[in-house]
Design a binder for these strands. Structure first.
Lengths: 101, 101
DNA sequence: ATAGAGAACTCTATAATATAGAGTATAGTA
DNA sequence: TACTATACTCTATATTATAGAGTTCTCTAT
């Protein structure tokens, strides 16, 4: 991954928080709202963006007779996350060696 | 570092690109412009933000009889960068183990 | 001394986008 | 039939990144 091609997904607290939360497993709308502290409208909008970009999958169903929106990170999303971290690690690694500041 | 407290510095390609470039050593305005592809105005604005936030130091001087703005990452900036990467690594690590997707 | 060039801005307007919050749809329950 | 909970959608606002014109400063050439 190139430094100049960082996916938009990683460019706001909220989307990054959502992805991070999903790394450890499925979460529903309610969970994500509580974890991130976002409002309904904003969370809905950002989830939609993440879905459109292929980072997450959104599944709607009725659970316990209540609507439940379940979100899950995709393999693509997980891969991008890993690549992003690896890129940063690499940059940091270069810095720790060749200190010519 | 908390997922909900990610510094603004890491929330745009441009600022992240600048910080990354500075990790490996001092760079002047011209270098950074070339590396990032940003316009003068935009680069100037973002450098100012990074400076105000204490991530970088900007030094102005005349070199070869031409003005030269030299930018350098601070210890604080380097530390924040490391913390940020470590936080992401940690999240990713949790995910690789307890897969309950 | 005057004009021009290069570097690095500053300033302002525009564009993009995150966010809040009101309103809406749906299914279930009383 | 009214009422509740969930999860939106839609719209307006606020924030912020970006572009680009104009400005300042120093030196060089005329």
């Amino acid at each position: 991954m190139e430094i100049n091609a960082i996916p938009e997904a990683f460019q706001t607290k909220l989307r990054l928080a959502v992805l991070s939360a999903l790394l450890t497993g499925k979460k529903n709308f309610r969970d994500l709202k509580q974890i991130t502290g976002a409002t309904d409208g904003n969370l809905g909008a950002q989830l939609k963006k993440l879905e459109e970009a292929g980072y997450i999958e959104i599944d709607k169903a009725f659970v316990n007779k209540k609507p439940q929106t379940s979100c899950k990170i995709t393999d693509f999303g997980r891969g991008q996350f890993r690549e992003y971290v690896e890129m940063l690690e690499c940059l940091l690694g270069q810095a720790e060696n060749g200190q010519k500041s």
